[in-house]
Design a binder for these strands. Structure first.
Lengths: 171, 171
DNA sequence: TCCCTTCAGTTCGGTCATCGAACCGTAGCT
DNA sequence: AGCTACGGTTCGATGACCGAACTGAAGGGA
């Protein structure tokens, strides 16, 4: 039916969600935003996405109110998750946990812990110690045993040590 | 880097997950499988996906152990979710709930209830009455107030009345 | 001041995926 | 024998994505 990327005939909120978030690279861009990446160049270097595609994805994410673009210096911008973007965390986490379980041959790549009590989260996002599901701002990420140092861009290097989600990753 | 659909340079289980489940139409195919659709023709009629694309998606889903293909009559097949496929439910549900919240102008399209106690699930998938997160086999789906009858294929019609997930949708 | 680098894109030609429509073979029904 | 349904396959056209090169503004160093 539809031409290109939308699912026109579907009266379904999953389809509506996928029209934004289901395009190639978009989820990985958002993952990096949760990890604390904020700048065009860092996203590009970490993802190896064609620049034109990255530009396109960022503008649609901004247009749809998932990212906010601010000029931190003349001509240079930062992209930050809005509340609408933050609300995508459960979906993104669930998908990555499925990947950890079913498609991570050498063991887990990353471990997410509730920062307040330093307990590893369950695949559902629940902190077993507190009985709560912490929001991304309360989550720390550490590399797991299955993570291999394949990349050497600045973002990949920074992600090799413990880091609080949503806080700026680069010095 | 990668050509086409994979995210080769990323040592990340989200990327690994998206290589399978992130292609166009794949999530909607899986959604229909959770809803109880099992046959090629029903999927095609409900999704308006090009037949060649549907064939390709189904074979990769089978190859990756997410769907199981069985011959229910000479030359005719049924596709059913395996355990690995069932494990995608939290991700699929989370994404559709995000769509319900942020991209459903006329109200919710579908309501999911815990069949055992007939209580509507929270966006997290939790049943507030039981305090548990029911698996898809224990969930009923009913049309919500925002759902409009735009399609008239057999699947869409069947989905207009209450239905238990994973049970065959067509008579 | 001049040169060099960084950032954040844009432009472009080529390749790959997806599109709609038509075609095909098997099986059951009448 | 003829018709329909199912589950695909084939094909040419269109659109998305690819890598590489180019741009333009700003900052830093000599």
């Amino acid at each position: 039916m539809g031409l290109g990327k939308n699912y026109d005939g579907q009266d379904c909120s999953l389809a509506r969600a996928l029209e934004i978030v289901g395009e190639r690279w978009t989820m990985l861009v958002l993952r990096d935003c949760f990890f604390g990446v904020r700048r065009f160049t860092d996203l590009q270097a970490h993802l190896d996405v064609p620049r034109a595609v990255l530009t396109e994805r960022l503008t649609t994410l901004v247009d749809d109110g998932i990212l906010e673009r601010t000029e931190y210096r003349r001509g240079r911008h930062e992209y930050r998750l809005t509340q609408r973007g933050l609300d995508l965390w459960p979906a993104l986490f669930a998908l990555s946990q499925w990947g950890e379980r079913h498609r991570a041959p050498n063991g887990r790549r990353r471990i997410f812990t509730h920062a307040a009590c330093d307990t590893a989260l369950e695949p559902t996002g629940l902190c077993p110690a507190c009985g709560t599901v912490p929001p991304p701002a309360d989550i720390d990420m550490t590399p797991g045993p299955g993570m291999r140092p394949v990349r050497d861009d600045a973002v990949s290097v920074a992600l090799r040590s413990r880091h609080r989600l949503l806080t700026p990753l680069m010095a």
